[in-house]
């Protein structure tokens, strides 16, 4: 575990050094690198959110009714206690 930690910290240090150097000489290149990563993460989150919304809609649906996901968007989360 300790070795893994050292390796991870070394990689983090290298990434920071890379970012500093690239930021100095090629700030827009660094912005592409970070920005694309950010966009990928947000798009992945949007996809995962879709599944959460679908699951919530399925849980909120009564048997026999057609799936109306938009009502599940407004419906309380199944994990929230009902007051």
């Amino acid at each position: 575990m300790f070795l893994r930690y050292i390796i991870a910290m070394a990689l983090a240090a290298l990434a920071i050094l890379f970012g500093i150097i690239l930021g100095d000489y090629g700030p827009w290149y660094l912005s592409w690198f970070l920005g694309t990563g950010f966009m990928v993460l947000v798009a992945v989150s949007a996809g995962v959110l879709f599944e959460a919304q679908e699951d919530a809609a399925r849980a909120a649906r009564d048997p026999g009714e057609s799936l109306d996901v938009s009502s599940a968007v407004d419906a309380p989360s199944p994990t929230r206690p009902v007051r």
Partner: peptide, 22 residues
């Protein structure tokens, strides 16, 4: 289709803001 649209719309919106900035 619904899932692809979701991912592409969010990704594209961020890209659109970025392309105008750049």
């Amino acid at each position: 289709a619904r899932r692809s649209f979701r991912i592409a719309a969010v990704f594209g919106m961020l890209g659109g803001a970025g392309v105008i900035t750049l």
